[in-house]
Design a protein around this nucleic acid. Structure first.
Lengths: 228, 228
DNA sequence: GTCTATACATCGATAGAC
DNA sequence: GTCTATCGATGTATAGAC
């Protein structure tokens, strides 16, 4: 008896998964929109599916317009099941935003391999830009859903954002010091360089070209903005 | 009798206005956030107050998180009164978005006064950037609430957006032609120049400096990005 | 850990008096 | 053209069975 119930449940679950993937919304296939960022650290798999569904939904409609029903449905479960894994919709956003911010910072840090300031800047901008293109879905959530975070959670990601900004500013400072850069307004130019990459998350879609090629172009443009 | 009722209403109305202005939200005074863009063409004044309240609310919380009650309250009227002037919340957004896009395009066109491509580019970028800073509230709505528009309304503003893009691209094309610019990737660089200015609407607040000074800085950076 | 069912609040928009 | 009152839909989150 118990076995048959379990069996029925499994079948039902599989059927639901098959029915819900791929999904077509407004004529556009939005299945597996979530990019290749690793979410393996999220356990159990049901929680991971929720995170991936939430990223897609938040990027597509925005946090406020996304319903918990939508997120749960993308993860192949009922609305109530969401609350077993996350205490609120906002908490789900926070987990995504926090991990996304850390991933972006890590990309920047691992791209800063030393050498001449010009080479470092080019490497940083190329990596940061390509990340925003390649992971445009989560990048969109990271950059444009900040005001949906609670004040406490916002403060936490703001710390990471300051570290990201500091990473760029340091390279510009070094370049000014050794004379390879001419930067009249250091904070303003730092923000402009960041802006260039961040705004990619607003407009990028896969059909707009290769992320690495875009990174190279933007590295070029950023370098020209500051070179002496 | 009739007179006394009218009198009472006027008093009540004035009292409501005094109570609702200035407003403090989350410890921040948000009164008269709406910038100096002319909304004199919106008649009657009640409709104008709705537009101004909606701009502030949309920029502050986003379209989806803004309630019609909030908009009406900022305009000093009841929720129902909104529907006398606008048939829906989305229509209010569309009016704002349409006028904002047209204003931005007009700024660009009037800044393009001829001369050398370098001077034209600097003038365009300075004006477009300063506009996004000075009118950052409506610019935020213009740039970041597009997906809340109906498909038909989105198509209409998209036409204006293409004209804005074309204006920048033309200057770059002219500069390449006369040899003053070196632009390997014309569409990509056009987008990058636009990005720089547009992203201002994401981060700008009045305490971050003078819009015109920012415009000059960005004109400089954009020029350096493309000069031969 | 997932389900069905639902509590409870709030939203966009409407009805009808004045 | 503004109000009060409210409809019907929908949202987040919870209760309790399994």
């Amino acid at each position: 008896m118990t076995r048959s119930i379990v069996g029925l449940r499994c079948v039902r679950f599989v059927a639901k998964r098959l029915l819900s993937f791929p999904r077509v919304v407004h004529g556009v296939n939005v299945s597996a929109v979530t990019d290749s960022l690793d979410w393996d650290h999220v356990e159990p798999p049901a929680a991971r599916r929720l995170v991936q569904g939430a990223i897609d939904a938040f990027a597509e409609r925005g946090f406020q317009a996304t319903t918990t029903r939508d997120i749960a449905s993308r993860a192949g479960m009922s609305p109530a099941a969401l609350y077993v894994h996350y205490p609120s919709k906002e908490r789900l956003l926070f987990e995504i935003s926090l991990y996304g911010h850390n991933a972006a910072l890590e990309i920047l840090r691992s791209a800063d391999t030393g050498g001449a300031p010009a080479d470092r800047l080019r490497s940083l901008v190329a990596a940061f830009t390509a990340w925003h293109a390649r992971h445009h879905t989560i990048a969109h959530v990271v950059q444009y859903e900040l005001n949906a975070l609670s004040p406490e959670h916002l403060a936490e990601v703001a710390t990471i954002r300051r570290a990201i900004s500091a990473q760029i500013e340091q390279v510009l400072t070094d370049g000014v010091q050794d004379g390879s850069f001419a930067v009249p307004d250091l904070p303003g130019t730092t923000l402009a360089v960041l802006s260039l990459s961040i705004d990619v998350a607003r407009w990028y879609t896969p059909h707009r070209g290769d992320p690495d090629a875009l990174g190279k172009l933007y590295a070029d443009l950023a370098h020209r903005m500051v070179q002496a």
